[in-house]
Nucleic acid binder design. Structure first.
Lengths: 158, 158
DNA sequence: ATATAATTGACTAAAATAGTCGGTTATTGC
DNA sequence: GCAATAACCGACTATTTTAGTCAATTATAT
């Protein structure tokens, strides 16, 4: 399991979907606008998310993406795995012959570590994230942004 | 906290130090030979490890690096932090104004996540890794490599 | 003195990340 | 049927990170 900004983009986008996709599908243009992620980059990410059956798409006007199942059945680990899609979690191929016939010194360490992080992130669902108060309030602000441009962001909110 | 191959290299090298550096300092050339990491790349990594006070150096013949303290006082998290040295764990600066005055949707998630992974890796010391049977056997094989070139690596060993 | 080995800095190659562009296909509403 | 929408697709580019090279300098043990 690798942890980079790419996975964060994907989780952010999926969280946006979970928050705004309850009524109708959400277009990538909308997500792009709200989360400041480039549309074309989102296209790449969602191609992978769709291939991994995390989202389904609706074409044409009014179309977009929606979660392929309930937010409590989609986990952060799945999202990160989908966009990283590096099968090779250990860096040595998992084939146990990384060091020309030997197993590299930290082979087991990284397998363990990978497992631990993976199971940790497998316990966090989108629904779980949506429940967080902070996320809800931020989302509300983002929705209201067009009406009232607030420069009065208090520290308490953050 | 970012998790890439760079951190794995660093941990591997430090583990090598913990295993072979009990008597005398270990030269980067030795580590390079045993772990198949390029000497110059090790130089870069150890410059950072030294700046972060995880190793101390001894110049001249018979010199090399040793752990700056006991293996039970050096943790995987510290090693990874040292070589990544991206203070910005959240990707949005932690300054809480990533989205032009707003906090990005997953800001808290990644702070949490980062904290969890960090505390997990902060619980694993080099000494802890050395105690692992697998690591010891692999290390033994690596040390003996020059005497008996073994092509008879059984699956059970792996 | 000499060999060893850290230390430094500049430079390069390859890969991953992030993003652009120009199209095509399916669908909806008029 | 037509136009607008928005997914879908592939090729292409820029930036950053990773990984590694090279050439020198400095300290030190013998």
């Amino acid at each position: 399991m690798r942890l980079t900004t790419k996975g964060r983009y994907a989780v952010t986008a999926m969280l946006d979907l979970a928050l705004h996709g309850t009524e109708r599908p959400v277009s990538l243009a909308d997500i792009s606008g709200r989360q400041s992620i480039s549309l074309s980059y989102l296209e790449q990410l969602f191609a992978k998310l769709r291939r991994n059956d995390l989202v389904s798409s609706v074409r044409g006007p009014g179309g977009g993406y929606r979660l392929s199942r309930g937010g409590h059945e989609i986990f952060v680990a799945q999202i990160i795995d989908a966009v990283n899609e590096t099968v090779d979690a250990t860096g040595c191929g998992g084939s146990s012959d990384c060091r020309q016939g030997e197993v590299c010194l930290t082979h087991h360490l990284w397998c363990d570590l990978s497992d631990q992080i993976h199971s940790f992130l497998s316990g966090i669902s989108l629904a779980h994230l949506v429940e967080r108060r902070e996320v809800q309030s931020i989302s509300a602000r983002q929705e209201a942004r067009s009406q009232q441009p607030d420069d009065t962001l208090s520290v308490a909110e953050v």
